[in-house]
């Protein structure tokens, strides 16, 4: 795994910043095993974005730019990634764990005959004995794993690696000629983006999540003024999403989004294991819940027991005054 290929992701014509902590992972791994890393960018009309990736110390930035890659399909993309890995002499492939790479990377691993580590949170040791840590059982267990194949694939947990540092160097941009091999077995139909003026959950410095305690859409809307003021992303528990109050991709937790903002407000949510798995690495956690026994208080830095319907407007007002707004 000495030559690592990092997949940088694009979303709606831009580099998806949340995919870049995989570069930091690759740089760290390359340092520990005495190897090097390159970055790959796949898409249609993405060549112009390559310049944004050349300052992170990668040996090469490979661009695979062809109309076929306008939309993602697991089978053809896995073929293309493995073809590029072979061209580039890569023995490991890494990408930040999100719904794109969770779909793609296992196929890449199967095709390469590589062991895959999902949701890697840390690199342990170095050289031939290097091992990896990853959360299991909704983050209640930290497993140390070793890869037993000569090649390896890594899903990287983005909240556990920093955004890449600008090294000042300039990676060589290589246009790789990889065909989009359409096998006709799958067809892209459409994508309906979640429309929101708020920052993305994974990128926001402040996240405000609501749970069942907010009762309904009107209750949940009480989070909006606070979120507006703090430029926060809004998250939710499974119960809220299941009730149709929030879009699916706002679910924070074991099987949804994993976030680690500077400040996390948990409002009217109990703190089920599954939810806590997605937010417990937040820097500062504030919990507001009327049930003083709620498990969320055991992970919160500051807990306030009380009625969220009463506390939210008060808190919003207090923050407004503090900010001089």
């Amino acid at each position: 795994m000495k030559n690592i290929l990092v997949i940088a992701e694009t979303f709606q014509g831009k580099i998806r910043k949340t995919s870049l902590p995989a570069v930091t992972f690759a740089a760290e791994l390359a340092g520990k095993v005495g190897g090097e890393f390159s970055i790959a960018l796949f898409g249609s009309g993405v060549a112009g974005l390559a310049g944004e990736l050349t300052g992170f110390g990668a040996k090469n930035v490979y661009v695979v730019d062809a109309p076929g890659f306008a939309n993602y399909l697991g089978g053809p993309w896995a073929k293309a990634v493995v073809a590029l890995a072979q061209q580039a002499g890569a023995t490991a492939v890494a990408a930040v764990s999100d719904t794109f790479s969770r779909d793609l990377l296992p196929r890449v691993a199967a095709r390469m005959g590589a062991g895959m580590v999902s949701e890697t949170t840390a690199i342990v040791g170095d050289g031939a004995g290097v091992k990896f840590q990853r959360p299991m059982w909704a983050g209640n267990v930290l497993g140390t794993v070793e890869v037993r194949t000569p090649t390896a694939v890594f899903g990287v947990r983005g909240t556990d690696f920093d955004p890449p540092k600008a090294t000042g160097g300039a990676s060589a941009v290589q246009n790789a000629s990889i065909a989009f091999a359409d096998d006709g077995k799958a067809t892209y139909v459409k994508f309906e983006p979640t429309v929101s003026a708020r920052p993305d959950l994974a990128e926001a410095a402040v996240v405000i999540s609501g749970g069942r305690g907010l009762k309904d859409a009107a209750g949940f809307a009480l989070l909006n003024p606070l979120a507006d003021m703090l430029k926060a992303a809004i998250g939710a528990t499974r119960a809220v999403v299941d009730a149709g109050i929030c879009p699916n991709d706002l679910q924070v937790g074991q099987t949804g989004r994993v976030v680690a903002p500077q400040l996390y407000f948990a409002v009217g949510l109990s703190g089920a294991i599954q939810h806590v798995a997605g937010m417990k690495n937040s820097k500062v956690i504030v919990a507001i819940n009327k049930d003083e026994e709620a498990p969320i208080f055991s992970v919160a830095d500051y807990g306030l027991v009380g009625d969220a319907f009463k506390i939210l407007p008060e808190l919003t007002d207090a923050i407004r005054k503090h900010k001089g707004l």
Binding site: F11, L73, D98, T99, F100, G184, K185, A186, T187, Y188, V189, K190, F191, E192, P193, T194, D200, A202, N248, D249, R257
Partner: peptide, 14 residues
């Protein structure tokens, strides 16, 4: 319909 980060995708598979 597939639940993705950022929205809902629809694909057709044979």
């Amino acid at each position: 319909d597939r639940e993705l980060d950022g929205g809902m995708e629809t694909i057709q598979v044979g």
